[in-house]
């Protein structure tokens, strides 16, 4: 193969519009909701994360970007310790959440997972009605009367911008909704448990562009009340929805900071190459 002679800086980089920058203030000025310190992760003997350190700012959207297999999902799957479902997966290091290291033994996983909700790539409604899907977390964690339950279900669906579409379908199975609706149902289900943090693992990669736009709009609304961490391989999406961005490469955080800065003035060459699509 021949070496390309074109000068890198002369190539026209695709411009990515950063929309939410105005909300993001100086990184250090905001309190952190989650502080990751020296996080290592192993799949069996294979190490997937290497001593990562990251601050997740309260009531802001943090995007995690990077090429496939770089450890984005692995990283956020440590925040609610969901990886423990698989016996050969192991995390070491510290993740501080509300004054406690959640990786320490003795963490109440049920309460941790109520406070840190998660949305997955594939919409995954439970095999029950729309109403029962939302009520699932409420029934798990709270004692509610019948009417209180109905109120909270309605409230969660409204906050997930789904109420108007499903208010006459509450008794229908969650699986009968469209893909995009199912994903917002998953979000509503997570919201209903009154979480503080919402983790989103490529929430739009299995749904169409119109549904994606709705979810992105929803993320913007939710970020006033919740701390959101979103993994995405769509850089335009990261730029549109996030205040902060962390760029992962081969299990390491190459660069993290204000989204505007990462996209408009990256400090590291690897970041710049990835952002501008010159990655090989």
């Amino acid at each position: 193969m021949t070496e390309t002679t074109t000068d890198r800086s002369a190539a026209v980089a695709p411009r990515i519009e950063v929309a939410t920058g105005q909300r993001a203030v100086e990184f250090d000025a905001l309190p952190s909701k989650l502080s990751v310190r020296g996080l290592d992760f192993f799949y069996g003997k294979e190490q997937a994360l290497f001593g990562n350190t990251l601050e997740i700012k309260e009531k802001r959207v943090t995007a995690i970007i990077g090429p496939s297999g770089c450890g984005k999902s692995t990283h956020i799957r440590t925040f609610n310790r969901i990886y423990e479902l698989y016996r050969n997966q192991r995390a070491t290091g510290e993740i501080w959440f509300d004054g406690r290291n959640i990786l320490a033994s003795g963490t109440d996983l049920l309460d941790l997972r109520r406070r840190i909700g998660m949305i997955f790539q594939k919409p995954s409604p439970f095999p029950m009605t729309v109403f029962d899907n939302i009520a699932y977390g409420l029934r798990l964690h709270f004692k509610l009367s019948r009417s209180e339950l109905a109120d909270h279900v309605e409230d969660a669906l409204k906050r997930a911008a789904l109420w108007d579409e499903v208010k006459h379908k509450l008794k229908e199975p969650g699986l009968a909704l469209s893909g995009g609706q199912q994903q917002r149902l998953s979000i509503a289900r997570a919201i209903a448990a009154e979480p503080e943090v919402i983790l989103m693992d490529e929430p739009c990669s299995a749904i169409d562009p119109v549904a994606t736009a709705k979810i992105e709009e929803l993320i913007a609304q939710l970020s006033s009340a919740y701390t959101i961490v979103i993994v995405t391989h769509n850089m335009q999406q990261a730029a549109r929805v996030s205040d902060y961005t962390a760029f992962f490469f081969e299990g390491r955080i190459v660069e993290a900071g204000l989204t505007t800065q990462i996209f408009e003035n990256p400090q590291r060459k690897q970041t710049e190459d990835y952002i501008t699509g010159r990655f090989s």
Partner: peptide, 12 residues
């Protein structure tokens, strides 16, 4: 597996 993870991620 996503369904298993979703249920556990709800704190069940």
């Amino acid at each position: 597996n996503e369904l298993r993870e979703s249920a556990l991620a709800m704190g069940a």
